[in-house]
Each structure stands twice: as structure tokens, then as C-alpha cells.
Simulated scan of single mutants.
Amino acid sequence: MIGEEAPWWSFPFGSITSLALAAAYYRFGRWRTLHMIEDRPAAGEPPDTGLGVPHQRAHLSPETPNG
């Protein structure tokens, strides 16, 4: 229908559509009322990421005060 110019018209059309959808989500979305993190303290040990020596195998001696 549009011919060779269709791909070039798709870029501004896609950008304008993306802008309109993002603005609508910002204005009317429920993202302001949703709570992903609850207000409670963290519990348990931190996860082992494999980047350091685990606490159980560290064999660290207790710290002594300087003096």
C-alpha cells in the first residue's frame, strides 16, 4: 500500500506509539499503589554467591581488640 517508504514510516509510528503507551501507563497505571517490597526486616543468612569463601569454611579466628 505505502510501498518502499513503509519501513521508514514505521520508525516514527513505532516511536509515537511507544511514547503514547508509556505515557498512558504512567498516568493511569497501578504502579504507584503496588508494593513489591514489604516493610519487614530481612531474616536468615545472605545467599552464597560463590564469589567468596563461605562463612563455615573461612576458619576465621575471633577478632582481638587492638592495644
Score class of each variant (00 low, 15 high):
1 M>D: 07
1 M>C: 12
2 I>N: 08
3 G>M: 01
4 E>I: 15
5 E>R: 13
5 E>M: 13
5 E>Q: 09
6 A>V: 05
6 A>P: 02
7 P>E: 08
7 P>T: 03
8 W>R: 10
9 W>K: 07
10 S>W: 14
10 S>Y: 11
10 S>K: 01
11 F>A: 11
12 P>L: 01
13 F>E: 05
13 F>H: 04
13 F>C: 08
14 G>R: 02
14 G>M: 08
15 S>Y: 14
15 S>I: 15
15 S>H: 05
17 T>R: 06
17 T>P: 01
17 T>G: 09
18 S>K: 05
18 S>L: 15
18 S>A: 12
18 S>D: 02
19 L>F: 12
19 L>R: 03
19 L>P: 00
20 A>I: 15
21 L>V: 15
21 L>P: 00
21 L>H: 02
21 L>S: 04
21 L>Q: 02
21 L>I: 15
22 A>P: 01
22 A>Y: 05
22 A>N: 05
23 A>L: 15
24 A>E: 02
24 A>C: 04
25 Y>E: 07
25 Y>H: 04
26 Y>R: 11
26 Y>T: 13
28 F>R: 01
29 G>H: 01
29 G>D: 00
29 G>T: 01
29 G>Q: 00
31 W>T: 03
31 W>Y: 11
31 W>C: 04
32 R>K: 11
32 R>L: 05
34 L>Y: 04
35 H>W: 10
36 M>R: 07
36 M>T: 08
37 I>S: 07
37 I>H: 07
38 E>F: 11
39 D>S: 12
39 D>T: 14
40 R>E: 06
40 R>C: 07
42 A>K: 12
43 A>P: 00
43 A>T: 15
44 G>Y: 05
44 G>D: 00
44 G>I: 05
46 P>C: 03
46 P>V: 04
47 P>K: 02
47 P>V: 13
47 P>I: 12
47 P>G: 05
47 P>M: 06
48 D>S: 03
48 D>R: 08
49 T>L: 13
50 G>V: 06
53 V>Y: 03
53 V>A: 04
53 V>D: 04
54 P>E: 00
55 H>E: 10
55 H>W: 12
55 H>N: 07
55 H>F: 12
55 H>G: 03
56 Q>R: 12
56 Q>T: 04
57 R>Q: 14
58 A>I: 03
58 A>C: 08
58 A>H: 10
58 A>K: 11
58 A>L: 09
58 A>R: 14
58 A>P: 01
59 H>S: 01
59 H>N: 13
60 L>H: 12
60 L>T: 08
60 L>W: 09
60 L>C: 07
61 S>D: 11
61 S>C: 10
62 P>T: 13
62 P>H: 06
63 E>Y: 11
66 N>P: 08
66 N>R: 11
67 G>T: 09
